[in-house]
């Protein structure tokens, strides 16, 4: 892993909402062609971390470096134009727009002409055929899994270097979740760096290269996915010494 592979580096990040500091000390790295998974319980600060990386929330302390440059106060829409594409949790597609409109809007940041975007849309249809079949229907008419694929397709339209996915498996049936995970995995091959936030620990560990676990706004565990043990993970999840569930589970 050479240093020039590094896409995104987050160091000692602090962020939150107003005076509610949710994230106190988070560090992580994403490299091109790899998947970094960010794990942690509910309310640990995962989504807030992503919001700070993408510029939706202000950074109170620490640093976010993207492509070797400090991002500082760069506004969200500029970060998208620099190749940072974020799929928010809860399948946030535009429900009132059609699938094709959603995808076109996904390519907005590339500043391409509509004709060029329509070609790019075709590629997405090849990757997610179901989207092509329903192209002129409103996004609200699709099922949860399809909307998730649309959201990912929309993010890909921006020709990103870094793809950030917030709980793509949330609320999906196991079979569909598996399909989504496979799709995400196959994206690695294109050289894309992926930052994945997940609740589904096992499934996401299987496709990840790097793991970072958050607890109460701090990175409590980080390292290569291949070396993680369940015990380590539970300890990182439920706090340090008095981790009752970890003990229970280990029995």
């Amino acid at each position: 892993m050479t240093e020039e592979n590094i896409l995104l580096e987050v160091e000692h990040l602090q962020t939150g909402y107003g005076d509610l500091k949710v994230v106190r000390d988070v560090s992580l790295t994403v490299r091109s062609g790899q998947i970094t998974v960010l794990l942690g319980r509910n309310g640990a600060g995962k989504t807030t971390t992503l919001r700070a990386i993408t510029g939706l929330n202000r950074t109170y302390g620490g640093e976010v470096r993207y492509l070797g440059k400090k991002l500082g106060e760069t506004v969200a829409h500029r970060r998208v134009a620099q190749g940072m594409s974020y799929v928010q949790e809860g399948k946030r597609v535009f429900h009132e727009l059609t699938i094709e409109q959603n995808l076109l809007l996904g390519g907005f940041s590339t500043k391409s002409k509509k004709r060029a975007l329509l070609e790019a849309v075709q590629e997405i249809y090849e990757f997610f055929p179901i989207l092509g079949d329903k192209r002129s229907l409103p996004a609200s008419s699709m099922s949860g899994g399809q909307q998730q694929m649309l959201a990912i397709g929309q993010a890909l339209m921006a020709k990103p270097k870094l793809l950030i996915l917030d709980e793509p498996s949330q609320g999906l049936a196991p079979a569909i979740m598996k399909e989504v995970m496979e799709r995400v995995h196959s994206l690695k091959a294109t050289g894309l760096g992926i930052l994945l936030v997940e609740q589904a620990v096992q499934e996401s560990l299987e496709i990840s290269d790097e793991v970072s676990v958050l607890d109460m706004g701090r990175t409590s565990l980080a390292g290569p996915a291949s070396s993680m043990t369940l015990e380590q993970l539970q300890e990182a999840y439920f706090g340090t010494s008095e981790s009752v569930p970890a003990k229970q589970m280990a029995e």
């Binding site: 509910n42 589904a200 096992q202 299987e206 043990t229 369940l230 015990e231 993970l233």
Partner: peptide, 15 residues
């Protein structure tokens, strides 16, 4: 909470 199937034996989860 963990998304882990609990019959895991505490060894490495992947690979």
């Amino acid at each position: 909470y963990l998304g882990i199937v609990s019959d895991s034996d505490g060894t490495s989860l992947v690979g």
